[in-house]
């Protein structure tokens, strides 16, 4: 339990005064995600500790440097969990890193994204001023939702100090089933199932088979499983999908994540293709970067990200008016441009 707000604020003020860029660091497990930042490290890992957790309020508030593993263990002790199923890329991964990168796991299309569960944040702005946006209650429409804006902003808009997250009780029962269905047939099938109120919590195609997870009450899970058939399999598959350690993501120099509308056609580029998020995200393991992927993703009303093998561009290029708006938003909160400059895009 250490509160380093004062020291961190001093460092930010000094950086702003000298216009020195800062590279915000947590546990370092997600440093590969995004463009490299040339700046002085601003270390958050020691600014840690759970500030408040009341299971009956369904809220946990912790400092940004708190290891995610510690938070998830604490929640599990009270039969609660983070519904967005954040990926883990190493034991040192922190709450701040998870929120700043905004990544959500296989549960995302069924129970929502990380940003949906952020209730409030405390951040340092470019002046080194600690600002609180949002709070610890679910229904709160006072002021702009600057707290949700921080989720996935990769530290470009401020230094996350504390975060309040909404938590939920764990499902009473979970089961995983595998099906011999092709990528396209499996996707069509899950799209049809999602029109019904079924206890689905995961749908992943590894390139060979479809895997479906069910979560909920005993009766609903049992009746869905009986109807679906398929082959029972171990639930350990899902952490591998979440953390990208499953073989479908491995063994290639380049890994694309292509988010696309669930009913858009799947991409047809060279490489091995898997999909997660019930067909809303395609994962393409390729030997080299084909820039056509960006164009194709944009045409599908989606976007592509290079999870491995990026050279320069990592994230989908933004339309010019949108990029300008991003620059104005960054300038609003970080006028001296000291927070992770260039992390998301050149010139941002």
């Amino acid at each position: 339990m250490t509160d380093l707000t004062a020291q961190l604020a001093d460092q930010v003020r000094a950086a702003t005064a000298a216009a020195t860029p800062l590279r915000i660091e947590g546990g370092g497990t997600r440093a590969w995600y995004g463009r490299p930042v040339d700046g002085q490290p601003l270390k958050l890992a020691d600014h840690k500790g759970v500030i408040d957790y009341d299971p009956s309020e369904l809220v946990i508030t912790a400092r940004a440097g708190t290891p995610m593993a510690e938070i998830e263990t604490l929640l599990a002790e009270h039969h609660q969990m983070l519904c967005f199923e954040p990926p883990s890329f190493g034991a040192a991964g922190t709450l701040g890193g998870a929120v700043a990168t905004g990544l959500s796991g296989p549960r995302r299309p069924f129970t929502g994204a990380l940003r949906d569960y952020v209730l409030g944040v405390r951040v340092l702005d470019g002046q080194g001023e600690a600002l609180r946006f949002g709070g610890t209650v679910f229904k709160n429409v006072a002021g702009f939702d600057a707290f949700r804006l921080m989720a996935g902003a990769q530290g470009s808009l401020g230094v996350l100090l504390d975060v309040s997250l909404r938590v939920f009780p764990r499902p009473r029962v979970e089961r995983s089933l595998a099906f011999d269905l092709s990528r396209d047939a499996g996707r069509d099938w899950i799209i049809e199932q999602m029109r019904r109120p079924l206890p689905l919590s995961g749908a992943f195609h590894d390139g060979h088979r479809l895997h479906v997870r069910l979560s909920g009450g005993e009766a609903a899970v049992a009746s869905a499983a009986a109807e679906f058939g398929g082959e029972d399999e171990a639930l350990d598959l899902w952490p591998q999908v979440r953390d990208l350690t499953h073989p479908a993501f491995q063994g290639s120099p380049v890994l694309w994540r292509i988010a696309l509308p669930q009913t858009a056609p799947l991409p047809e580029f060279d490489g091995r293709l898997a999909w997660d998020w019930a067909g809303g995200v395609a994962w393409l393991a390729a030997d080299e970067i084909d820039p056509q992927v960006w164009t194709w993703a944009a045409r599908m009303d989606g976007h592509a990200t290079l999870f491995r093998g990026a050279k320069g561009q990592v994230f989908q290029p933004l339309a010019s008016p949108i990029l300008k708006l991003h620059q104005r938003i960054k300038a609003a909160l970080d006028p001296a441009s000291v927070f992770n400059p260039g992390r998301m895009y050149e010139g941002l």
């Binding site: 940003r115 939702d145 949700r148 989720a151 902003a153 809303g280 599908m300 895009y345």
Partner: peptide, 21 residues
Amino acid sequence: MTIGSEALDSAGFDLMALMTG
């Protein structure tokens, strides 16, 4: 301007979050 997309997330800042409310 178009903000967000039919895909479940978008590149860049979450402008949907800022616009909503």
